[in-house]
Amino acid sequence: MKKYIFLTPAIGNMGGSQMFVSNKCKFLQDRGWKVDVFFYQDFDVVLENLKEYRSNFIKELCYPFYYLTKNIINNIIDLLGNQVCNANYDEIVIETHLYHLAYWGEMLANKIGGIHILYPLEEKTYHLTKKEADFFEYKLKRWECLNGYRKTLLRFMGEYYKKEYEAYIYEANPICSNVVAKIENRCSFPKCDYTVLSVGRLEKPYVKTMLNEIKIFTTKYSSVKFNIIFIGASADGSVEDYIKDLFVKVCNVNIILLGFLFPIPEDLIKQCDVGIAISNSVLASAELGVPTISIDAQDYMALGVYGVTTTNRFLREQEPQIPISDLLEDVYLNKTFYTLNDRTSGMENEVDIALKVHLDFLEKGTHCKTYFDVMSV
């Protein structure tokens, strides 16, 4: 019997990481793994197969371990470890999704004799100390750092990046774009000439830049009636209030805030003329043939129209920096962007294929039961 433990920020609300965890839980359970998910952000759980983990809320996991006393740290590790101490597992894997959770994962693996896989899903850029960089190098060289794209490593390691790390690159997509379904679309919108769609959590750093750029674009074309649809929300509603205030005097714009919507009706997305998103949220509209502007996670400018002028969804390579408003105008005026085909057929099979890559990664590791001295960081 095998055990898989996730340490992740949230299973509630709806976002890319929640969908990824949902997909991977199902994939693992279908193959006989026993799965547990621990989290520290207490939101309503939308995804049905994650509801069984609602009791695994541990608030203290929101803190880097070095903010807490040794007694509290030990209590949390004991609490996590108790989930496996009474069972005889042949293999135990812990997967962590954030920089600070990686240390918790390493301590837990040390206690229960598991394998700790670091799979960073966050979009922040950190400035590591030398000791912190040593920890991530240790994980990388033991084949215990998944999602090791070169761009990810460059961003993550910063000044401590070494060319030799490229020998340990293992690309595995956190597949989470299967949020669209052929279900009845019960959403009705005001009549308009043009519809702009944003998919993604509204707390993300690029959002306010995107909003201001949308305002520039819609103000320039004041004779055009726009619907601006937002699928996603902020935890406290503050960004929604900001959006309403920003557009309150823009008379040619209807703001439509749908919140966390799952699944997203396919027909809703197909009504839209252009999408704007970052990371894997780009795929929700792009895979249905809607021209979708992909945003750079560092400068918040447009990378391009995904699948047409860029293949990147997170960081730019050679693409020019383009203000979002300029690219919105290009898409509005230039119908050549409307050449994408619907690529959603076979999505369920694609999820399994992508997640098999994750499982295959476990075979590359050393499986040596030695661990980094986290307390030395």
Rank of each mutant, 00 (worst) to 15 (best):
D36N: 08
G81S: 07
Y89K: 14
Y119H: 14
E240F: 15
R155S: 14
I94H: 00
T96I: 15
F314I: 07
G114P: 12
M210C: 04
N13A: 06
L154A: 06
A235M: 09
A109Q: 15
N178R: 03
K163I: 06
L140W: 03
F337L: 04
S281E: 11
D326I: 11
S177E: 13
S285P: 03
L128K: 10
L315E: 09
K26I: 05
R343L: 12
G237A: 09
E329L: 05
R186K: 13
Y338I: 02
Y67M: 09
L121Q: 11
E266C: 12
L146T: 01
I295G: 00
I169E: 11
A233D: 07
Y40C: 14
I264R: 00
I11A: 00
L98V: 13
L327C: 05
V248Q: 10
V305K: 07
L101W: 13
V274K: 09
Y89H: 09
F247I: 05
N147M: 11
L197A: 11
N86M: 13
G114M: 01
D134C: 07
G304Y: 10
D342Q: 06
A297P: 03
Y138S: 02
L68N: 09
K26P: 00
M14P: 00
K3R: 15
Y371E: 02
M1H: 14
F39P: 05
K356V: 06
A297N: 10
R343I: 02
L121P: 02
Y89S: 07
V180M: 11
L202M: 15
T69S: 14
T310P: 02
N147L: 10
S17H: 00
I256D: 02
Y138L: 09
T219R: 12
T311G: 13
Y126Q: 05
V35H: 04
N147F: 11
F38H: 08
T344M: 15
K131A: 04
F6T: 03
K335L: 04
C251M: 10
N252M: 08
G259K: 14
E363V: 08
I264E: 12
K270Q: 09
I94P: 03
F39E: 02
A277P: 12
